[in-house]
C-alpha cells in the first residue's frame, strides 16, 4: 500500500525528517507516536501533499505509484486521506456542496457517473449514521462554528464518504473528551477492512486503547527510532518518551 524509503524533508532550510523508512500493507493499522516536534505531523503533511515542505531525499510509493508525481487532489482520488489535526473553517462553503464536489471528482476518476442529488443525500445520511455524526450538517458551512469534537468527527465522516485505501489520522485524539474519542475511534474501526490501511499519529497511548494498532513506531528527531507491537505503546505510557530519548541519544 505505502512504501517510504529514506525520506528526508526540510522547511526553510531546517531538516525535519531525517530519513524515514516505513512500509504499510493492506489491512494494517500503524501507529506513529513521538514527542512534540519529532516530525509526526510533517510526515502526514508531506504524504498529503502540502507544498510548504521541501522533500530533499527518498521516495514514497503509494499503490505502486510515485506519490510525489501526484498533486494533493490526485492523491485523494487515488485513495489517500488525511484527517487533519486542525480542520479549517471555510465559511460560505456548505458541507453538502463540498462533499458533493469531492465525491463527484472521486467517481469521475474511477470512471463512474456522478451521483444523483437524491442518491447523494441518501449516501451522506448513511455515512453520517455509520460514524454516529449527530451534528446537523444541512445548510452548514465546512467546520464553521463546530466544536473541537465536531470538527474531528467531521473528518471521520468525510473519511467514510470518500472510502480511502489509506487514511492518515493526524492527532485526531487531540482536544477530544473521552466520549468524542470513542465515537471517533468507533468510526475508524467500522471503516476498517482487509483492503485498507491506516496510520494513526498520536502523542498519547489513550487512542490506541480504542484503535488497536498492528505496529507501533516511535518517531524522534525526524527518524523512526523504535518499532514494535502494541506493547511498545504501553511501555511508552509507563515510562514516557524520556527513556527512548536517552536510548537514542546514547
Amino acid at each position: 500500500m505505502l512504501k517510504i524509503q529514506g525520506l528526508k524533508a526540510e522547511i526553510e532550510g531546517k531538516e525535519i525528517l531525517k530519513g524515514i523508512n516505513l512500509e504499510i500493507k493492506a489491512g494494517e493499522v500503524h501507529a506513529i507516536m513521538g514527542p512534540n516536534g519529532s516530525g509526526k505531523s510533517t510526515l502526514a503533511s508531506i504524504l498529503a501533499g502540502r507544498e510548504i515542505f521541501n522533500v530533499t531525499a527518498g521516495k514514497v510509493e503509494f499503490k505502486d505509484k510515485n506519490l510525489f508525481d501526484l498533486s494533493p487532489e490526485e492523491r485523494s482520488r487515488e485513495g489517500l486521506f488525511l484527517a487533519f489535526q486542525y480542520p479549517v473553517e471555510i465559511p460560505g462553503v456548505s458541507i453538502t456542496n463540498f462533499m458533493r464536489a469531492a465525491l463527484d471528482e472521486h467517481r469521475i476518476h474511477k470512471g463512474q457517473k456522478p451521483m444523483t442529488a437524491t442518491g447523494f443525500l441518501k449516501f451522506m445520511k448513511e455515512k453520517k449514521e455509520l460514524v454516529e455524526m449527530d451534528t446537523k450538517l444541512e445548510g452548514r458551512a465546512v467546520n464553521e462554528g463546530f466544536s473541537g469534537g465536531e470538527k474531528k468527527k467531521n473528518e471521520i465522516f468525510q473519511m467514510a464518504m470518500l472510502e480511502p485505501d489509506l487514511s492518515i489520522l493526524d492527532e485526531t485524539d487531540s482536544g477530544l473528551d473521552i466520549d468524542a474519542l470513542k465515537v471517533v475511534a468507533d468510526g475508524v474501526n467500522k471503516l476498517k477492512t482487509k483492503n485498507n490501511a491506516s496510520i494513526v499519529i498520536t502523542h498519547y497511548q489513550r487512542l490506541l486503547d480504542y484503535i488497536v494498532p498492528d505496529v507501533v513506531h516511535v518517531l524522534y528527531d525526524g527518524k523512526i527510532v523504535k518499532t514494535g507491537g502494541r506493547e511498545l505503546a504501553l511501555e511508552l505510557e509507563k515510562y514516557g518518551y524520556d527513556k527512548i530519548k536517552k536510548e537514542y541519544e546514547n
Binding site: 498529503a48 501533499g49 502540502r50 507544498e51 498533486s71 494533493p72 487532489e73 492523491r75 485523494s76 482520488r77 486521506f81 488525511l82 487533519f84 480542520p87 479549517v88 471555510i90 462553503v93 463540498f98 462533499m99 464536489a101 469531492a102 471528482e105 472521486h106 476518476h109 465546512v142 468525510q158 470518500l162
Partner: peptide, 9 residues
Amino acid sequence: FYLKSRGIP
C-alpha cells in the same frame, strides 16, 4: 489545501 486534499481540483 483542505479542499484539494479531498480530491477537488
